[in-house]
Design a protein around this nucleic acid. Sequence first.
DNA 1: GTCTATACCTTGATAGAC
DNA 2: GTCTATCAAGGTATAGAC
Lengths: 231, 231
Amino acid sequence: MYAIYSKRLLSMVLIVDAVNHGAINNSAINNSAIGETMTAVTARQRLLDAAVESFADKGFTGTTTRDIAARAGMSPAAVYVHHASKEDLLFAVSLAGHKDAIAVIEQAYARSDDPVDRIHNMVFDFTKWHAEHSRVGRIVQYEFGALVPEHRRAIAAIRNAIEDCMRKALEEGIATKVLQIDDIPGTALALLSLGIDVVRWFEPGGSRNAGELAELYAGLAVRMTTNRQAG
Amino acid sequence: MYAIYSKRLLSMVLIVDAVNHGAINNSAINNSAIGETMTAVTARQRLLDAAVESFADKGFTGTTTRDIAARAGMSPAAVYVHHASKEDLLFAVSLAGHKDAIAVIEQAYARSDDPVDRIHNMVFDFTKWHAEHSRVGRIVQYEFGALVPEHRRAIAAIRNAIEDCMRKALEEGIATKVLQIDDIPGTALALLSLGIDVVRWFEPGGSRNAGELAELYAGLAVRMTTNRQAG
DNA sequence: GTCTATACCTTGATAGAC
DNA sequence: GTCTATCAAGGTATAGAC
């Protein structure tokens, strides 16, 4: 009856990664630690995965708890064993997504000391992440307003850190006169915007793959920020 | 009882403009033609305006017909005299918004013959429109999926025309060797993305006004597309 | 063209057996 | 920790008087 759990585990990598980062409570890790039989996927993970699919397809308000439960292969009541409310499920998904996104951009920042390479790497990785996780990305970017104030504050802090990271990269490039930018916060916003808007339209299997799109946008970002005389 | 119609007519310019363009049926025009007493706003317009506010605040699925009716100062039943369904109201708002957006970008295209000025004007006007109409813009950009297939097709045609216009501007600049672009459709997408993503976060009264933001993005667009040797 | 009243359905969340 | 059954509230849309 409730065994119609979808096999399309598009976001599983993200969820598992989030668990490793501590974004989601560590019941999955405990399961293996105590030697419990490892089913293919825990109920918690199925639930988060079902929520991602449902929220991405229909939006937060358009999603019913019955829909999530059916996708996770459980009864509507079982959802509330793991999460206090539908909004609580959204917060779990949004937090995992944001933690993944900031890890991606901070790692890209750290990978090179050269300001131009840095901009290239950051826009490349940020864009690629949004293309490859466009379903989670849609929730991350569009359902912020559906969070309760307390959860909104937690997410806003991560968003600010992402913008800070990009601003820092621009400032350092300007200091060494390799980058030429009039409006640092505005340009940081534009560079992030480019990657973020990908979630609005990108679907795997289109005419462009995630890596090609990321390379295109990274190249445009370098043109936007580099000194024209030095180019 | 139902006289709580909000005075915040943020989208009124758009709505009236859409009527002039024929996007919305011409009852408002008929009203004056037959010499009827001109109330400040017709019920139709109040309804469309209320729908814009409600959809922008809560999304299409999060909006109730009761909410729209209350904002328009009428009973829930009165809504159905003007529109067959909630989705039909969304379509009216979305169509008016899309027609306004394409008019803006096509006028910007036609304003200059110089390829660089053209890119500047198109990105400037498109960005400014999305900043100044961020509430309508949010509906235009994020509620496409809530339309029924027939309405989706009508809107998709306008979206394609917007992309065509931007691609044409890039192609003409490349032909005269003033612009230097590797991937024309991809770059067109990026330029439009920059303006579109504004609706996600822009609110009037922030640290940047619509014109300043548009100027910043237009400048970045020119850097993205112009020949580096010629610069 | 507007109202009051309401039909009929789905919603998020809970109770209590197992 | 999962189920079946259900609650109270609120959803879209309609009926029929004025």
